[in-house]
């Protein structure tokens, strides 16, 4: 039980009339890398956005490291938590976005330093040393003083990964991290992610990169129309999918 980093139970979410999550349950153990795949509109992005409460949920519950995310229990009902404690919970959860969302008015280094200094109150010198180490780790030590506008997409996404890692999160969420990239630079981002997975980071990755899922995932989860329809270790998942819709999806994408 203590081993569960993510514990999501029957998560439901609707946007107006459209029910995007129709009861999603998913557990992620410490050190595990879970890839969520599925056609667009299947709710996979919405689901991981719920995990750090960028989206509210309508029912169900999501726990990260044993703590309810975004909500508090009051008389058996869930009420939204205060902004302060939601923010504190998010410090544990790194997020990498499809569109990078680097801060364009700050250099690569300043992007990485910002949250540790402003949120965790890490002394600046230490934060800078950490940031330099992280930039080196994603292969961008020489870009520390460069603004995002001067970096390629792949470089920007690697800075974004370093920025999220600077908070020393217990969990990393990746929302289609390579979908906005040119094909020739997706490799450099995926390599960084593979290393991260190998080093034991707990990761949930929404992706269309089946090669990555095959290589780095401990478990692959297939979502369609707001529910998880199949999950399993990649060997099994890709070689012998059980579900008809999974087969159809894989045949289209591979």
């Amino acid at each position: 039980m203590n081993d569960l980093v993510v514990h999501a139970v029957d998560v439901r979410k609707r946007f107006g009339k459209l029910e995007v999550l129709k009861g999603v349950s998913l557990d992620v153990r410490r050190g595990e890398t879970v890839c969520i795949i599925g056609p667009s509109g299947s709710g996979k992005t919405t689901f991981i956005r719920c995990v750090n409460h960028l989206e509210k949920i309508d029912s169900g519950r999501i726990e990260v490291n044993g703590h309810l995310i975004g909500y508090r229990e009051r008389k058996g009902k869930l009420v939204e938590d205060s902004e302060r404690s939601i923010a504190r919970q998010r410090t544990q959860i790194g997020m990498v976005f499809q569109r990078f969302n680097l801060f364009p008015h700050k250099t690569a280094l300043e992007n990485v330093v910002e949250a540790p200094v402003q949120v965790l109150r890490v002394p600046r010198e230490q934060a800078v040393a950490d940031a330099e180490r992280l930039l080196a780790r994603v292969g961008l030590a020489d870009k520390r003083d460069v603004y995002p506008g001067k970096l390629s997409g792949g470089q920007q996404q690697r800075v974004a990964i370093a920025r999220a890692l600077a908070m020393r999160p217990a969990l990393m969420l990746f929302d289609e991290p390579t979908s906005a990239l040119d094909p020739e630079v997706t490799g450099e981002v995926l390599t960084v992610m593979e290393e991260l997975a190998r080093e034991g980071m707990t990761m949930v990755v929404v992706t269309h990169e089946m090669g990555f899922a095959r290589k780095a995932a401990d478990r692959v989860v297939m979502m369609d129309e707001g529910v998880i329809i199949e999950e399993g270790p990649p060997e099994h998942f890709f070689e012998a999918p059980e579900h008809e819709r999974t087969k159809r999806f894989l045949s289209k994408i591979l």
Partner: peptide, 11 residues
């Protein structure tokens, strides 16, 4: 996305 990125960092 700027606000979301900042919030996801605990700001």
């Amino acid at each position: 996305g700027q606000m979301e990125a900042a919030k996801s960092l605990g700001m």
